[in-house]
């Protein structure tokens, strides 16, 4: 039964509809139009954009490339983030300083840091090759070879977002109960066994949350690629977000880029749901 008090919800609901539902519905509508640089407006062309998308090998290749990149970066971020969190979890000299220091990369602006890293990796002027040359290595084609560019983007992503993983995992560690550790100590468990039998299982739920959040963010990688490699050499570092940016904003294919965005959104929801289920099954031992 609708009562007058329910109308107090109306402003919040309208705001929600305006900022979430309207753009989404509008994007769906645009994706069925031929809106581009010459044809502005919402004509109706049926599923032509989606049919074109199915044959767009560049899009599918970028998706495949992103899968590899995300798997590598998030795995490294998780391992390093966990290690750093464990390092400062227990009382240690300068622990508070290191906690703040580890967070610095995450607090910097991605675009600015990408510019800095691009300079670091500059092959004739950057410090990376200078340092390597002192030990007889190089010059390394950081940004001009396909493998080098891919690795460079991975390094920057890991550097920038490991602190996020560190923060979440440290919060999880701090909130763990003490009793299991007391029991493990009484039983004489080694530190390694304590980690694998106590810490890791207890941290599984928060680990899954952190990994999923990072996968969602990693799937949107754009600024690092834009600044450092422009998707090159060739298409070696082109990700779906960057590809959609090119189609939508550089080439002004508004209708087609809307279709790409929606297809990408649906694919991400499906893939990430499957990954979350699998992680729950293997790490926690249940599906939900």
């Amino acid at each position: 039964m609708l009562k007058s008090k329910h109308f107090f919800l109306l402003p919040a609901l309208l705001t929600l509809a305006a900022i979430i539902l309207f753009p989404l519905i509008f994007t769906v509508r645009v994706s069925f139009s031929s809106w581009d640089v010459y044809q502005a407006g919402l004509d109706y062309i049926g599923g032509r954009n989606y049919a074109r998308l199915m044959e767009d090998t560049r899009f599918w290749e970028s998706l495949f490339r992103l899968s590899g990149m995300s798997f590598i970066t998030v795995t490294l971020q998780y391992v390093l983030g966990f290690a750093l969190a464990l390092a400062v979890w227990k009382d240690m000299a300068g622990g508070r300083f290191f906690r703040i220091l580890f967070l610095v990369p995450m607090m910097t602006t991605p675009v600015v840091m990408s510019v800095i890293w691009r300079t670091v990796f500059h092959e004739s002027l950057g410090p990376a090759n200078d340092i390597l040359s002192m030990v007889g290595i190089g010059p390394v084609p950081w940004l001009s070879s396909a493998a080098g560019a891919f690795i460079s983007v991975v390094i920057v992503e890991v550097w920038q977002w490991t602190p996020f993983m560190f923060l979440l995992l440290l919060a999880g560690l701090v909130s763990l109960p003490r009793e299991p550790y007391l029991a493990a100590a009484i039983d004489g468990a080694s530190p390694a066994r304590t980690f694998w039998q106590v810490t890791f299982p207890l941290m599984a739920p928060i680990s899954i949350g952190a990994i999923i959040i990072r996968l969602i963010e990693a799937s949107k990688i754009m600024d690092t690629v834009y600044v450092m490699t422009s998707g090159g050499p060739g298409t070696a570092t082109e990700t779906p977000s960057y590809y959609i940016y090119i189609r939508g904003l550089r080439e002004f294919q508004v209708g087609y880029s809307a279709a790409l965005s929606l297809a990408y959104l649906v694919l991400m929801i499906i893939i990430l749901t499957i990954i979350a289920k699998l992680l729950m099954r293997f790490l926690v031992g249940k599906d939900d």
Binding site: D36, G232, P233, G234, T235, A236, R250, E251, F252
Partner: peptide, 18 residues
């Protein structure tokens, strides 16, 4: 923009040996 972007991508693929 569409024509030049397409051409740049093709040229880049050749330059990269793809």
């Amino acid at each position: 923009g569409q024509f030049m972007s397409s051409m740049a991508n093709g040229v880049a693929e050749a330059l990269a040996g793809q």
